[in-house]
Every structure is written in structure tokens, then in C-alpha cells.
């Protein structure tokens, strides 16, 4: 037996009624009202906290009631999914478990599942698309920031020759090219465009004292391209943004900041992982070309200890490629391995 308000489905008038379920029928009684409706023909809204339940009777009639337990008793086995969810929602233990589960599942999803899916998708994208991306990016950069290089032609030729010799043996080596630009607005920087063009700015070349240091930087950038980092980052970031926007809808008024902060942290996380991967590639390739990874560590130190006067030019590269102690340590470890392997045998 439970109390409710009966609506006739035609107007906003409510009539107070008493309902009782017995023998497959819901008996409804109120002032001047008495009738029955088959339980099997009544639709019941799922339970949710203390909110009212709506029983939809045939012919558009509705009974609204807040006696949730009585409704559940009269209509067992209804909305089984949401009945289960409702039970979970009422227990603090489930809430605590949900906090843990959310943290673990979200971390696993964003650090393992999503990168894995994005990387699989990246493999399916044809190389021609990537080359087109690179061309577009270069033409935009040329319009905005890159001007013809002022490095003497002989020096450019020499570096190009070293570069060609360096990429000859690697998979897809023929696709790789190196380009030099004067870019005061960008400062000392080197980056790989999708499709295999490696760009060095004049400021960067001036910081690099030897061809080996140039190769060390080039090898790192080739590593980015070999692992298709730009494409993978684009796919991961886009997925994070879309998922973030979907959840921001649920988050409601708190909106953008809530999504912006984790997105930023995630992007940073992906970038760091890619830097480490490109470093590893560079160490291996340098060693294969009889250049010690120590050169790489030296360049990193140069950025780390960049002279105050140089700061404005060196910062650009450093901000996208943090010269952390961790990276230097790894480079020096690789250098020790290299020396051990190349030591004159007794």
C-alpha cells in the first residue's frame, strides 16, 4: 500500500490516491475514484535516490509517488540495470570503490589504451597523407616565420652530405631531407616535419660546433619521424580533446578548466615519452655511425647551461625538448656502453 498523486494525462490536476498491488493488479482508490490496472501493463521509472517515481498506466494516466520501497515491492525485476546502479549509488563503500576505480581506469585508459588505439590508427594512415601534412606545415611556417638561411652555401652542402650519408641505411631513408632556415622569431630550434623533412634554424646551427653535434640533433629528429611521433601525437591529442569535451558536458557548469588541466598534463606526458623514444633511437643510430652518444649529452649540457645572453635564442628548443638531467644521464650511459663496445681489445 502506498500513497501517490494520480494525473489523468489531460491536465495538471492531481488527485491523492492510495495504491495497492495484489494478484497482478494495481488497485487505485481516491476521492470518487476506484479502478485497477494490470501490473504488467504499467511502466515504472527507474529508482533514483529520493526522487519521485512515475508509474505510467494505460490510457495516459500517471501515478507519482515517493514511496520507493513500496514501488520496488510491487514491481520486482523491473529496470534491472538501473536498480543495480541505484543500489550502488546508495552505499558509501561503492562510492569509495568508484573513486579508486575511476582513478585507476582513467589512468590506464589515457596512458595505455588510448595511446595504443591511436598508434594502431596511425599505422593505418598512408605515408602520402603524412607527407601532405608536412608540406602544409612547412608552407605555413614559411609564410609566418622561416626565411632563407644565411648559413654559407658550402657549410650547408657539407651538412647535407653528412645527413644523406647518415640516413642512407635507415628504412625509408630516401624520404628524408634536411632544410635550413633563418628564423629569428623561433630561435635555436630543430624539428621533424611529418613526411621526413628535418628543419634546422640558423641559430641552432650556430650553437652546434661540429658535424657530430649536428648529427646528434638530426638523429633525434629522425627518431621522431621513424616513430611517426607527430602523427601519433595528433591522434592522441585529438582523442583526448573529444573525450574531454564529452565529459565536460556531464561536468556541467565547472566546464573548461576541469578539462583543460588534465588535457595539458596528458599532452606533456605523451611528449616526454616521445622525447625519450627519439633519444633512444638517436643513441643507437649514432653508435652505428661510429659517433659516441656523448656528443648528444654535450649538446644537452650546452642547452642546460646556456649562457644568459643566449637564453632568448636557446629557450625555444629547450622548452619543447627539456634538457633534463634524466636525458643527459641516459645519453652518458649510452656513451659508456658505446665506449665499452668500441674499446680496443687487449
Amino acid at each position: 500500500m502506498f500513497a501517490g498523486a494520480l494525473y489523468n494525462g489531460r491536465d495538471a490536476n492531481a488527485v491523492a490516491v492510495q495504491c495497492e498491488a495484489a494478484d497482478g493488479v494495481l488497485r487505485i482508490r481516491g476521492a470518487g475514484i476506484e479502478f485497477g490496472a494490470e501490473l504488467s501493463r504499467i511502466k515504472v521509472s527507474p529508482r533514483l535516490a529520493r526522487t519521485h517515481r512515475i508509474l505510467r498506466l494505460p490510457d495516459g494516466l500517471q501515478v507519482h509517488t515517493d514511496d520507493n520501497d513500496a514501488v520496488d515491492a510491487a514491481f520486482p525485476q523491473r529496470n534491472r540495470l538501473e536498480a543495480l546502479v541505484d543500489r550502488l549509488e546508495r552505499h558509501w563503500r561503492a562510492a569509495v570503490a568508484s573513486v579508486a576505480l575511476t582513478l585507476i581506469a582513467a589512468t590506464a585508459f589515457f596512458t595505455v589504451v588510448l595511446p595504443w588505439l591511436a598508434d594502431r590508427a596511425a599505422q593505418k594512415i598512408p605515408f602520402a597523407v603524412e607527407r601532405e601534412m608536412g608540406k602544409q606545415a612547412l608552407s605555413v611556417l614559411q609564410r609566418l616565420a622561416l626565411k632563407p638561411s644565411t648559413i654559407p652555401e658550402e657549410r650547408q652542402q657539407a651538412l647535407r652530405a653528412r645527413f644523406v650519408g647518415f640516413v642512407r641505411g635507415i628504412p625509408g631513408g630516401a624520404e628524408y631531407a634536411v632544410d635550413f632556415f633563418s628564423a629569428p622569431g623561433i630561435g635555436a630550434n630543430a624539428f621533424a616535419l611529418p613526411g621526413g623533412t628535418i628543419v634546422f634554424t640558423d641559430d641552432m646551427l650556430q650553437m652546434l660546433q661540429s658535424d657530430d653535434e649536428f648529427l646528434a640533433m638530426a638523429a633525434h629528429e629522425i627518431g621522431h619521424e621513424q616513430h611517426r611521433h607527430v602523427l601519433r601525437l595528433v591522434l592522441r591529442d585529438s582523442a583526448v580533446v573529444v573525450i574531454g569535451a564529452l565529459f565536460a558536458g556531464d561536468v556541467g557548469s565547472a566546464g573548461t578548466l576541469v578539462v583543460a588541466v588534465p588535457t595539458f598534463l596528458l599532452e606533456n606526458h605523451y611528449t616526454r615519452a616521445f622525447e625519450a623514444e627519439a633519444d633512444e633511437y638517436a643513441f643507437t643510430q649514432l653508435a652505428a655511425h661510429a659517433v659516441s652518444p656523448q656528443v648528444f649529452a654535450d649538446v644537452m649540457r650546452k642547452f642546460e647551461a646556456a649562457h644568459p645572453e643566449l637564453k632568448d635564442t636557446s629557450m625555444a628548443y629547450a622548452s619543447s625538448h627539456p634538457p633534463t638531467q634524466e636525458r643527459i644521464t641516459r645519453a652518458e650511459q649510452a656513451a659508456r656502453d658505446y665506449s665499452a663496445a668500441h674499446a680496443p681489445r687487449p
Binding site: L48, A49, H91, A94, S98, L101
Partner: peptide, 8 residues
């Protein structure tokens, strides 16, 4: 409780 259970 509703929010966190549904989010999880």
C-alpha cells in the same frame, strides 16, 4: 555517490 558511481 550518484555522480562517482555513474562516472566509474
Amino acid at each position: 555517490r550518484i555522480w562517482i558511481v555513474n562516472l566509474a
